[in-house]
Design a protein around this nucleic acid. Sequence first.
RNA 1: GCCCCCGUCGACUAGCGGCCUAGGUCACAGCCCUUUCAAGGCUGUAGCACGGGUUCGAAUCCCGUCGGGGGCACCA
Length: 427
Amino acid sequence: MAARVRFAPSPTGFLHIGSVHTALFNWLFARHEGGEFLLRIENTDTSREVAQATDQIQESLRWLGLDWDGQVTFQLERMVRAQEVAKQLVAEEKAYEDEGATRFRMPDEGVTAWDDLILGAIEYPNEKLEDVVLVRSDGRPTYNFVSPLEDLLDGITHVIRGQDHVSNTPKQLQILAALGAELPQYAHVPLLNGPDGKKLSKRHGANTVEEFRGAGFIPEALVNYLALLGWSYDDHTELMTREELIERFSLERVGKSAATFDYEKLTHMNGVYLRALPPTEYADRLVAYLREQGYAWDEELVRKAAPLVQEKIATLGDFPKFARFFFERIAPEEPLEDGAVLPAVAETLAQIESFDAATIEAALRELADRLGLKPRQAFRPIRLALTGSTVSPGLFESLELLGREESIDRISARGSGLGGASGSSAR
RNA sequence: GCCCCCGUCGACUAGCGGCCUAGGUCACAGCCCUUUCAAGGCUGUAGCACGGGUUCGAAUCCCGUCGGGGGCACCA
């Protein structure tokens, strides 16, 4: 039988990165096995918020490239079916009515055991199993009942989920057994922690797919990084394409212990992916990102600036700060302690025949040499006057892009009203 | 409190009894390159939680301790 797995998020807000992690493992497993990856929404009502969250989840998965098979299913649609099954269980005396609710009769001797594909053999003493509520007194079935029931209905062969579900497993196993179901295999993947070892939360930084997207991470980097949390291919391979991940993924190589989400490593990897992009595609992504983020900067100028920053920034989100000076004048972040060279620079720039990076560089180096200045001494004030910062893209390329007139303007205007923005503004 | 799971550098991990004076990556430090910042190159700091066993031999197997996480709802 072909493998069939499912990702079953509850529609509460945005998709959390921890959920994405288990979704990814499900997806990689399904694709590797040539099986199916189902998307099931565990909704318990049909409010507007749920509808929005449902759309959001799908949008996030699409952005990540985690495509699912078949139609999205909703837990709520299975409510009546679940109630019927509960009645059947009562009729068979495997469950009983209790103050209006339906409870499952758990065995109180022996152990419930299963061979977890990741954790290995696990035994759970049945005496610790409570008679869980199957259906609430208001008629709504509970998670621990519907979830395994839906797995049965959907023909799920492998339940791949977070380790926070291991103690639910014996309960669900008992319910499934009472239903006469063929039991699925279970694989509990390690949880993700924040840098402080605690559960990943708001204060650790980006948390949801949307936040990572907004911060300028790109999906292939995020997917690659996430795959490496709790799974590894060998002792040295880290950069892998989507296809390589699918080809190499296996549950046998998934680790048992929780992993700490390291934003710095993700950022580094994102930079690696960004730099490896063909220039045109890099520009495309940058343009799309800036548009998404609400920047109204001139697209042609963004495309021209793109190659100047590609080698420099690790996330698309760094672009606005790093390259804003291309779009508006910026007051120097620190005083020009030695701006004496500037008039000579302006003059030089006015005189050179062609205003391209190579010519500019040659002329300015010659100027610095003539003034007996080291390159870094001579160029620092120029960079500051031009970009407002001591950190920027290549100086000569930036001058070329800015153009002769604007460059000279900025260099001459220093001290006199610099900071008055011109051109289009952001947000 | 009870139950379950986990425990290799600061972080992610390789290691499934001898190949380990423990390898790779991020971070960190130094050097090189360099118009700044990155990138890149080279070098380095840093780890088998602890204590008992088993074995000729243990990071690898067993037990205990300690530590961490998860769960114990008419939440999902």
